[in-house]
Every structure is written in C-alpha cells, then in structure tokens.
Computed example of a mutant assay.
Amino acid sequence: MSKYISTIGLLILSNAFMTLAWYGHLKFFNKEGGHASTPLWMIILLSWGLAFFEYCFQVPANRIGSSEMGGPFSLVQLKIIQEVITLIVFMIFSVTVFKNTQFTINHLIGFILLIGAVYFIFKA
C-alpha cells in the first residue's frame, strides 16, 4: 500500500475515533438515551479511552506521511489533510448520528474555501 493511501486511511480512522470521543457523549449520554446522570468524570474517562485509539492511528499516519520520515507530505500538507478529513468526518457524523444538522450555503462556501486552501498548500 502506498504511503499516500496509508496516511490518508489512518487519518480517517483517527478522526473517526476523535469525533466519537469529542461528540459521541452528546448523543449517547443525554436525556433521551437515559444516561444523562452519568458523572462527568466517567464521560471524560470514556472519551480519553477513545482518544487512545485516535492516537494509535494519528501517530503512525504522521510518521508514515511525513517527508521528515521519508513520506510524501510536508508538515503543512499533513496538517491541511488532517483538517479537511476532520471536517468531512465530523459532517458525516453529525448528519448520520445527530440527524439534526442541515447543510447550508455557508457550509458549501466554507468547503469550497477549504478546497482552495488545499490547492494553495499543495501548490507551494
């Protein structure tokens, strides 16, 4: 598997765990789910447990992808790839899990600007 695909695949997995750790408790430990009384410290520990798996994918992705380690991406390119993947994973998560997120013209404009950012970062 190429370093390009490995890096992007690992970043997608990393961001799936990150998004679940950061926002999953809002869906699964709320008043509707009957877990609203779960103590905050337990939610934090659960989120940290999920974040462990985020790092298990994030660190190898950065090492495989970094030009410092023989990979195809500069540090800035890795960061912009990660940010775009984060937003895509978050939007998919929020639409499928919360089902109350609606795409607006502002979202579309923001994504177009991100595509422009990717273009200019990779053009350098």
Results as ranks from 00 to 15, higher is better:
T86F: 12
A51C: 02
L13D: 06
I81C: 10
L13F: 06
V59Q: 05
L113F: 14
R63Q: 14
E54D: 07
I5D: 05
I12M: 10
V97L: 05
T19M: 14
T7A: 11
P60C: 07
G24T: 07
Q77R: 01
I109K: 04
S67G: 09
Q102C: 05
I92T: 10
V95P: 01
F17Q: 04
S74P: 03
A16T: 11
V118W: 04
F122S: 05
M42E: 15
I92N: 02
A16V: 15
I5Y: 03
F93A: 12
V76A: 12
K3T: 06
F52S: 07
I109C: 03
F103Q: 11
C56P: 01
T104P: 00
W22L: 15
F28V: 04
T104F: 06
Y23K: 07
L10H: 01
T7L: 14
I88N: 03
G34S: 00
L108H: 13
V76K: 08
A61P: 02
G71T: 12
L40Y: 06
V118E: 02
F122W: 08
Q77L: 02
K79Q: 08
S2Y: 07
L20N: 10
E54K: 10
Q77Y: 03
M18K: 03
N62W: 06
N100W: 12
I112G: 04
V84K: 08
V59M: 08
I112A: 15
F73V: 08
A124C: 00
F93M: 09
V89H: 10
S6R: 03
G71W: 09
S37V: 04
V76D: 02
L46M: 12
F111P: 02
V59S: 08
G71C: 14
S37H: 10
A51I: 12
G24Y: 01
F90A: 06
F17S: 00
G33Q: 13
Y4H: 14
I8E: 05
M18V: 03
M91L: 12
G34N: 01
G24S: 07
S47D: 03
L26Q: 12
E83R: 15
A124D: 08
I80Y: 07
K99T: 06
L108Y: 13
K3E: 10
H35L: 15
K3D: 09
P39D: 11
A61V: 09
V89S: 09
T104C: 04
T86C: 09
A21S: 15
F73R: 04
I5N: 04
K123T: 00
L113T: 04
M18D: 03
L45Y: 01
C56Y: 08
L114E: 09
K123D: 11
V97P: 07
I80T: 14
